[in-house]
């Protein structure tokens, strides 16, 4: 099974009600082995970082079996607003 960026994006939008998702395939030849994601969801509000990352990990637990490396940033919509202008 090949994991695609779009598949990851849709799953995060669907299961974590993410209002914004960025998925970057960071594998050297874009072979879908490593990904970097930014997830913005109000479900993260009031939750510590570890818990937010665990939410993303469990949402993608099936995909994780095929992914070699995974980086993530988990933000609330408010944090995303503050984070965005620097982009």
């Amino acid at each position: 099974m090949a994991v695609t960026s779009e598949h990851i994006r849709q799953k995060l939008v669907h299961e974590l009600a993410a209002v914004h998702v960025e998925v970057e395939d960071t594998s050297p030849n874009r072979c879908a082995a490593s990904f970097k994601v930014v997830v913005v969801s109000s479900q993260f509000e009031g939750k510590p970082l570890l818990q937010r990352h665990r939410m993303v990990n469990s949402c993608l637990s099936e995909e994780m079996k095929h992914i070699h490396a995974f980086e993530q940033k988990t933000l609330t919509p408010q944090q995303w607003e503050q984070h965005k202008p620097s982009q």
Binding site: L49, L50, H53, E71, K73
Partner: peptide, 8 residues
């Protein structure tokens, strides 16, 4: 106690 991975 588990702290997290590299990102955290």
């Amino acid at each position: 106690e588990f702290v997290g991975g590299c990102d955290i």
